[in-house]
Structure formats: C-alpha cells, structure tokens
Design a protein around this nucleic acid. Structure first.
Length: 722
DNA sequence: GGGCCTCGAGATCC
DNA sequence: CTCGAGGCCC
C-alpha cells in the first residue's frame, strides 16, 4: 500500500472523487436549481466522505464538503493575478485614425494578408482559465494585471462550458471574452425586476456587470448572460495555433462560444466594408455593439508589432459615432485637482444619453470653453466619447435668446483663495500654486495615493480623504499632507467629525428637517469605539507599505510620473535613493523617461516638504526599493534592438528580460546599439545592423546575452552570411 | 461620469 | 430597511 502523509493513495483518491462529485451536486442544487443527485445518493456520498475523514483526519481540509455543509455557495471577489496581462485597445474614432493605424502596421511588418474583423460587444471583459480542460477560474479584467475572482458566477453562464470538449487543448488555457446580456434577456430581466418591485436596470451592460458582481451565484444564474470569445492569454502545452482565427476555430471546436460574425479580410478596404456593413446593421446581433475590433490575424506579425504600455499595436477598436442629444447648460463650475489644475466643468439639465443619465461634463480648461464657444444658459450638443465620458460638443447657437452669459475663469482658487497662475507662457491649464496648503490639493492628492493606480489602499476613498485632511473637528487635521498617512493612530481618528457629502456632487448634505449640515463621526461609532473601517484601514495601510517602488513613486504625485514612467524608473534605478540622487541627465537616460519627466522629478525633489514626505514614508516602513535592487546589472549601458519574432519570448518578455538586467531596449539601430537580436522574419533592422557592423544575435545568442553577459554574447554572434 | 453591487452602521418595526 | 461609502465596470 502506498502512503502519502500517512494516507493510502486509494483513500486520498476516493476522497478527492467524492469531494468533487458532492461539490458539483451542491452547485447544481443550490445555484442552478437543477439537482442531478437524489437525496439518497447525496447522503450516501457524504456519509462515505465523513467515514474516510474519520479514518484519515489529514484529509480534512477547510474546502472539504464536510466543512462547508449548509453554508451557501458564494462568490468571494478575491483579487487574483491574471496569468497574462489583459491589455485594453487603442481606439479609432475616424477614418483617418484607422488609416493611420494601418499605415503604421504596414510600415513595421509590410502588407498584411489577413485582418480579422469582429464586433466589439458592449459588455465586460473576463478571463476564464481551463486546466486540463476543466474550468477552474473566471476573473474580471480589473486593472489588467489583477482582477476579481468571479468563478462561481461565471460557472452559471450557459455559453461557458465547465469542461472543454474534444481533445488537443492545452494544459492551461486562459480564454478571454466578453460577457454580455442580450437585448432580449435585458428586457426580460427588467420585467422581472419591476415585477419584484425593484428598479429596472439602466442598460444591458450595467445589468451584466451587476449580475457578475452578485455575491450569490443563484441570482446570476437567473440572468441570461452570454459570452463570446475574443482571444486568449496563457496557452501552455498543446499545439499553439499560428493565427487569431486559427485559435478561434480551435476554441470553437472545444465547445467555447465563438462568434460566427467574425471575418478575416484582405486589406483596409475590406475592413472598411465590414465596418460599414455593421454600421448599417448595428441592431442585427442579439447584443449591443459599440464598434468593430480589427486585429492582425497572424501571430508572428502580432509578435513583431508588440505592444505599448497599454495596448497592442496589432489591434484597434473602431468606435461607431456616439449618440448625440441636446440639453441645457445650466452652469459652469470649477474644480481643483491634485496637481492644482483648475478645471471647469459643465452642469447640465439631466439627460439620457447612451444608456445613462448625464448632468456633468468636464470642459478641461478655459481655452477649451472658448474654443467650443459655449455660454452658460446655452442649449448644447452632448455625447459620450467612446460611449463613456460625457462631452459637450458645441452650443446650438440658433436657440440663444440673449440671456446666456460668458463663463469667466476665477482669478482665485475656489478652495483656498490663492491667486491662480499659469506656470509658463502658453500653458493651457491655470493652477493654484498653493500646493502645500491648499485643502483641495491635499484632499485630492491623498485620495490619489489611495487609488488603484497608486498604492491601492482600499477603505480610503474620497470621503475618507476629506475627513482626514479637512475634518470639521478637530481643528488640527491628522493628515497635514500625505506624509502623515502612515503615522496615523486610532486616537487621532476617533474624534474626527466630517460632513456627509453627496455622492454625486461632493457637496455637503443638509438634514432635510432642520436644514443643518449633516455631521457624523467618521471613524467612531455611537459608543465612541472604532468602526470596522478603522481596522480595515490599518490593515490596508500595512499592505500598502509593501507595494512595489513604482507605485510609491506614482503616489508622490510628481508631475508627468504616471504608472508607465514610474515603472521605467523603478526598473532601471531600483531605489528611491537612486532616483532622488540622480542628475537630470541620468534620469533622462532612463528608457521611457525624457527631458520633461526628468526635469519634473528633479524639481519635485528640490522642495523641502516633498522630501519630507518621502522621509516620513520611509520611517513608517514604506518600501523604498525593489527586490534585487542590489542585484547584478550585467547589461548596464548596453542598448539592444529586437526585431523579428522569437520562439521563446514575446516582444514584452524579451524587453523585460533586458531591462531587468539593466539594459536598454531601443527601437532603431544606430552605431551606439550594442546588439541586434533577430528572430524569424527580421525586417530592415537586420540589414542596417550588418551595414553598421553591430553584433547580431539569434535567439540562442540572446539567451547567452541574458545568462552570461555581453562579453560572452560577442562570441556567439551570427555572421552576415548566416 | 454614471450605474451597479457589497458592506457596515444605524434607524425602524414588531 | 435605508443610507452612506467604497470599489469596480465601461
């Protein structure tokens, strides 16, 4: 008898088998309302499982069915990492932009034989992972790197098989697709909502999003959600197809839902025809679409085109022109952002457009207001750009009656009264220069520190940031700037009183009876004890201290330093210390960092109270260097150009590999280039390397470069005649 | 920017 | 049960 942890393997195997069948039975019973086991069968299996566990207590794990009987199946929304990054798509809003995309593609890889056109469904992107053909996880898109685990809700979607059919599927397959509610299903669900005395949903997309975020999968199961595949992430094992359409057909064969409306066409004209056809027949599909996605079909070409920090270069989303409506511009107000920028925004009579009610829209800056020529009191044309962000297009001048008035940019900060100023001649944005003390900037910066793009501190939102930086009581705020965030104590939090803010407008609410402003103790309950949020806040702060350096950098609100630049800086310089002490030239030498960013960083560190923020965070234990900060950098000062497609690397992973060793990846070959790495289908860069006498590496040589450094790599270069 | 869900806290009902 | 706050989707 074979033993594992003292348990016979047959027993362990039987235990696994029973657990699986019981879990499946529970799921069908509780969630799908379609029991497949009789009560007797269920009881018998449960009894056998208990007996097994009595004999072998090692088998009792928290996820054993014996441990969770009676507890309903729920979705826990845990944050999990995607196997591969989920990128978004660049948009083309006009013929010109579509043409420009095509030209760039052709310039990089030559004429493209196949463009895959598909409908862009207005739903939510998800990643569904199959291991050995079994559905193991469903994750929302999230920020592209991590998303929320919605597996139990995904399992209720009829289109999504729990096991792959056929054979030949990879060991691990991460299917990407769009979850949506078909129009008919939407109407059905809304009828049911109204029947049940609940408000109907505003539009199918939001209804689908809400359905996926149900804690109880039984609710999700009653929403007729659909799904259509639009790609894949991880693909481990099995035979990899060589094109997008090839992948689709394989996946279709495995029982995955693939649209039959996609087409591979031969050139830009045919792409235009596809776009036009569905523009005219937009309502033919059973679901809402907001555009067309065009992809370079061949994977070899996709790899050569690579991606920018946010989107692949081998795909583009054509967006159909947005719906436009008229409404009244009631007022133009201004807000102050985290960098002091003063932004005018329009307040309009609420109006339905593209599935939601709109009453506010940013106007960006004073010259934008002038350029559009809108007056307060105008009837304006409104649309949602990309069907998301409301945009005032233009005034309807014919409807003016003379009562309209021009908007005037305030001369003083609406929150701190400081005189506003342009930083440089010709700036579009006017700013409040009082960065250190302006309450609006403090609040906005603190809110930003906690945001998903920066340190991602859950439990600290807009209202919390307001309460910490400008409480009604005490007069001495616990957070005078973001430096204080990690030195908070419960004692400082308890006395805080803050106004209740309207979620929509951010203005203080008043008690409808007395007319007095509503005031609450934000962190203490009635008894004066800490609310649950306090505990969560401190846990989140501890987590935030462990965030990677680039997130800390982003959180500092240095002008021009967003996630992309911060990651470049962190990768190359690896510690706050190094970034702080680098000269402007050294900063500008970082791949992805130009003179503007370099100057902004230097200027930021010149300011005493800025450096104090960093010091305070460091004292509190916030991470100030990335792992491997002291690691070897054998490629420091070496610039590498990668061309053609490599077998074992994606464009991104090859780039990351070079950068992690301190090297620089550049797009064009020059005399200063250290190495040119060529894969299959190398372009003109290979010829240029030969002409300039730059060492050329094949994939094997590239591996030598990464493993053994530049000197070793020089011995394995390809000769020009190879 | 707006719509949705969840959760905690407090009010309200019985 | 209702409301406020936060998070997440596009």
């Amino acid at each position: 008898m074979t033993l594992r942890d003292g348990v016979p393997t047959e027993a362990a195997q039987r235990h696994r088998e029973l657990s699986e069948r019981i879990d499946e039975g529970n799921y069908r019973y509780y969630v799908l309302d379609q029991p497949t086991l009789t009560d007797a069968e269920y009881d018998r299996m449960m009894r056998e499982l208990r007996e097994l566990e009595e004999r072998h207590p090692q088998l009792v794990t928290p996820d054993s069915p014996t441990q969770k009987v009676g507890s309903p199946i729920t979705t826990d929304f845990a944050t999990v990492e995607h196997l591969e990054r989920m990128q978004s798509l660049d948009n083309a809003m006009s013929e010109d932009e579509l043409l420009a995309w095509d030209e760039r593609v052709v310039k990089e890889v030559g004429e493209v034989a196949g463009y895959l056109c598909e409908l862009k469904i207005d739903g939510l992107a998800i990643a569904v992972t199959y291991e050995k053909g079994r559905l193991v996880r469903g994750i929302t898109r999230g920020d592209g790197r991590t998303g929320e685990d919605v597996t139990n809700n995904i399992r209720t979607i009829a289109d999504i098989p729990s096991r792959l059919a056929g054979e030949g599927w990879p060991d691990v397959l991460e299917v990407r697709g769009e979850v949506f509610l078909p129009i008919e299903g939407f109407e059905q669900v809304n009828a049911a909502q109204v029947e049940a005395g609940k408000d109907p949903f505003a539009n199918p997309r939001n209804a689908a999003a809400g359905s996926l975020r149900q804690k109880d999968p039984r609710v999700t199961a009653h929403r007729p959600l659909g799904m259509l595949v639009h790609g894949f992430g991880a693909w481990e094992g099995g035979t990899r197809p060589d094109s997008q359409s090839g992948a689709y057909e394989l996946m279709r064969g495995w029982g995955l839902p693939v649209s039959d409306r996609y087409e591979v066409v031969g050139g830009l004209d045919a792409v235009r025809a596809y776009v036009e056809r569905y523009g005219e027949h937009r309502h033919d599909p059973a679901y809402e679409i907001d555009g067309v996605v065009v992809k370079v079909d061949q994977f070899a070409l996709q790899r050569r085109l690579g991606s920018t920090s946010r989107a692949p270069r081998w795909a583009i989303a054509w967006k159909y022109p947005p719906e436009e409506v008229n409404t009244k511009l009631l007022d133009i107000k201004v807000g102050v952002g985290r960098t002091g920028r003063v932004t005018p925004y329009g307040v309009m009579a609420p109006i339905q457009v593209a599935g939601s009610t709109v009453e506010r829209a940013t106007l960006h800056n004073a010259s934008e207001v002038r350029r559009k020529g809108v007056l307060i009191g105008d009837t304006v044309v409104l649309r949602k750009a990309g069907d998301v962000i409301p945009e005032i297009v233009a005034p309807v001048t014919a409807l003016r009656d003379g009562s309209e008035r021009e908007f005037e940019m305030p001369e003083h900060c609406p929150e701190c009264g400081t005189e506003l100023a342009y930083e440089k001649e010709g700036d579009a944005d006017i700013r409040c220069p009082n960065a250190r003390l302006c309450p609006a900037q403090l609040r906005e910066r603190l809110y930003f520190v906690a945001s998903r793009n920066a340190l991602d501190i859950e439990a600290l939102g807009y209202v919390g940031a307001t309460a910490l930086t400008q409480p009604l009581e005490p007069s001495d705020p616990p957070v005078k700037n973001e430096g204080d965030l990690f030195h908070l104590t419960v004692e400082r939090l308890l006395p805080i009183k803050s106004a209740v803010l309207d979620a929509k407008t951010g203005t203080a609410k008043t008690d409808p009876k007395t007319g007095e402003p509503k005031i609450v103790t934000f962190f203490a309950n009635k008894e004066g004890e800490p609310k649950k949020t306090v505990e969560i806040l401190f846990e989140e702060l501890e987590k935030a201290k462990k965030q990677p350096l680039w997130r800390v950098l982003v959180a500092l609100s240095i002008r021009h330093v967003g996630p992309a630049a911060a990651q470049d800086l962190a990768r190359e310089l690896r510690s706050m210390e190094a970034i702080q002490s680098a000269t402007e030239e050294e900063l500008a030498a970082v791949d992805g960092v130009g003179p503007t960013i370099a100057a902004a960083i230097r200027a930021w560190f010149e300011v005493d109270w800025h450096r104090e923020i960093v010091d305070k965070w460091r004292d509190a234990g916030v991470r100030m260097e990335d792992e491997g900060a002291a690691g070897p950098r054998p490629l420091a000062g070496v610039s590498v150009v990668i061309t053609g497609s490599l077998e074992g690397f994606s464009r991104d992973s090859a780039t990351a590999a070079v950068q992690n060793l301190g090297g620089k990846v550049s797009g064009s070959v020059s005399k200063k280039t250290g190495f040119v790495v060529v894969g299959d289908n190398p372009g003109s860069k290979y010829d240029k390397a030969v002409k300039l006498g730059v060492p050329v590496l094949g994939e094997e040589g590239f591996r030598v470069l990464l493993a053994d450094g530049p000197d070793a790599a020089k011995n394995v270069t390809l000769r020009a005649d190879e």
